[in-house]
Design a protein around this nucleic acid. Structure first.
Lengths: 221, 221, 221, 221
DNA sequence: GATGAATGAGAATTCATTCAT
DNA sequence: AATGAATGAATTCTCATTCAT
């Protein structure tokens, strides 16, 4: 948790620091990220970092929490209140998640890194928490989908949740390759025009299409 | 690539080294893996590592390549020659892949680590190569499946390949959680009885079921 | 020396600070003691410490002086005015010194630490001063003892003073081991029943016995 | 324990390092001693220290062990084989111990520091071990003295051992003051002519005199 | 071809002290 | 008079790589 010192900081400075820290963790994993580099980039003394946070681990926890809250908040805020079926709702969730990734490449990069963080003792808890939260969210959608009759009642819910989670998370890789969009560059140079929403929707159509109908030729259905 | 020196080594020594290196990278990610530990475990001088390989990165590339060849070879060798439809063939591929993971936990651990190690200039190329090879393999299956009429002709092939790849790779996580099987322990202590093949098949049924039929209630189809 | 600022402080605040500082130096040696922790425990700003004292070193000097005064005062106040022979008087001195240690573990801990902290320019002076004061006190006893005919006139006074001083100071270690009494715990948890006065007296008897009669078999004396 | 690397070092270099390390620990206590300073003084890279020893703690353990062995060896080698009574033997032990201190000020300084080391987790074991060894040695002398009829049979052995130990160890302080000999300077500048052996003996006479006969006027003995 | 000692830049972290507010 | 954020030099320790033997 940030210290009181950090919270009392002038907004400008606090944000300069946060930006520097996000820049670092968006590009490097936990081990590779350097507190010294963050301090240098933020233009503060190395010791100050330890006035703001309990240490590297604490700073990391804060940033991941922050990013997760922002992303979940962004998605929630973008979803229409009236749900309209599982597939529509899921597509929108992924769609706004992807929009968030394009428009907040640093936060998204951090979350992506956190998800695939090699599990050392320092990061295990954070990664696990992050995964659990995402899967809980998806499980809620799936349960509702079954209740509403949108999904097959005989679905293996555990596997479905797992599949939806994995595909959602790694969709970033897919988009990156398909649209030749480098999230790494976006983080570093603020850059690259995001994928047009139409193209994005087309991908999501393919996604939902497979989810909905499966891949098989409707053989003897 | 291994140097000529390494290739001319007495087989026993070469294998002692390879084993030690695999042991190390199976348990640690690239950064955490230690060249010194490998040398010590192999009973050779640290300097020798640099006579055999160009450096840590080069050694890593060699090991990942080796592991990938072994896994692909294992799967190919286990598949019946006569294909019998896309879903059956795919299920068998994943099934034998999982069997490989259970019976070769070190090689599998290394491949898993390599897959999720996209950060850092040292590993990016290797990860990308590994991913490309896997996806090429899957794409072959999908293309054949469409030609054979097992898969819908209007399928978004790129997305399908991506989805199959991601789910196959991360199936390891799913099994680990579902069956409470720790691959890390298996690597370290050779241990743990692998998931019974029946249970494994049950998971693959759920997997293929979703792929084949999708998740939607066959509403008014 | 405390600044005027410190002396003009409301008594309550001044004492809160003193208590916090004693707590810290009773448990930690000079290097390990932390100004920040003291400020936090006293509920004042870190900067205030430097308004009250010239720095860590100055604060340390003040505390040691304070503790020494308290201990000497305690002993003096407990001794009967009419002296009754060197050994009785010395035994009482040590006895009340030990009682002070048991009942004022923090002050005693601080003094003990200060005594054995001769390393480093910051503490050397304070240690020397403390040692000098103690030895001066003992020298007074010895001189009087000789004059009164309680001690041998041919005694090497310098050595005698040194020996009495060292043994008195380190008696704490002896008692701690002999009675399994942890002064460290007493400081931290206020706790532990002190050694019963009878047992304490028995130790002092052995002490004085050696001092008085020596260790030799009264051979053919 | 030193690593094999350290033991295989050319004698000159090994000694340069050992000297530098002793210089450091003879003047500073454990906390204050700096590995960086040792490396600089020895003219080697900081990292090399960690090739030679497991870390600061390990280096410290090695040095203390070394110094203790040297001092005990020196004393043992200097004592005549035929014991001649407790007090003679004890006086000789202390005498040669003091000679060692004057002629090996660094080793002696290190041992002195180790004895009074503030007990943090890193040094506790070493200090305790050192004290235990010394006291065991003294207890042996005392036990033999009683058996031989040199010491009173009703002596409180525990206290006697404690007293002899404390006085022996702190004799260094006494000599330092009495003869105005700065061990610190001796360590730093190799300097100062040691106290003449006659003067040293005179002090030991006073010491043994008090031990043997006690301090009391043989009043009504 | 093998060795293994040496390197040195870089990591995280601590803390007494200062000084603008 | 009080505050408390900022400092920055100092600490221990790591490890891939090199190179003289």
């Amino acid at each position: 948790m940030p210290t009181a010192t950090f919270l009392h900081l002038p907004a400008e400075k606090r944000e300069r620091f946060t930006t520097a820290a996000l820049d670092e963790f968006a590009v490097h994993d936990y081990r590779t990220a350097s507190v010294s580099r963050i301090a240098r980039a933020a233009g503060i003394a190395k010791g100050s970092v330890y006035q703001y946070f309990d240490g590297k681990q604490d700073l990391y926890l804060h940033l991941v929490t922050l990013a997760a809250e922002r992303k979940f908040g962004f998605i929630d805020g973008s979803l229409p209140a009236d749900a309209s079926g599982f597939f529509t709702r899921f597509r929108l969730t992924v769609f706004h998640g992807a929009r968030f990734d394009f428009t907040h490449p640093k936060l998204a990069g951090l979350l992506y890194n956190a998800t695939y963080e090699p599990t050392g003792p320092e990061t295990r808890a954070v990664s696990a928490q992050l995964k659990a939260a995402s899967q809980r969210y998806i499980r809620g959608l799936v349960d509702a989908g079954i209740r509403a009759g949108d999904l097959r009642a005989d679905l293996d819910v555990d596997f479905a949740v797992f599949a939806l989670y994995q595909l959602s998370v790694s969709l970033r890789d897919y988009m990156s390759e398909r649209f030749d969009f480098s999230f790494a560059d976006a983080v570093r140079h603020g850059g690259g025009s995001p994928v047009p929403e139409d193209d994005l929707m087309a991908v999501l159509d393919a996604f939902v299409d497979v989810l909905e109908r499966g891949m098989a030729l409707r053989s003897a259905a």
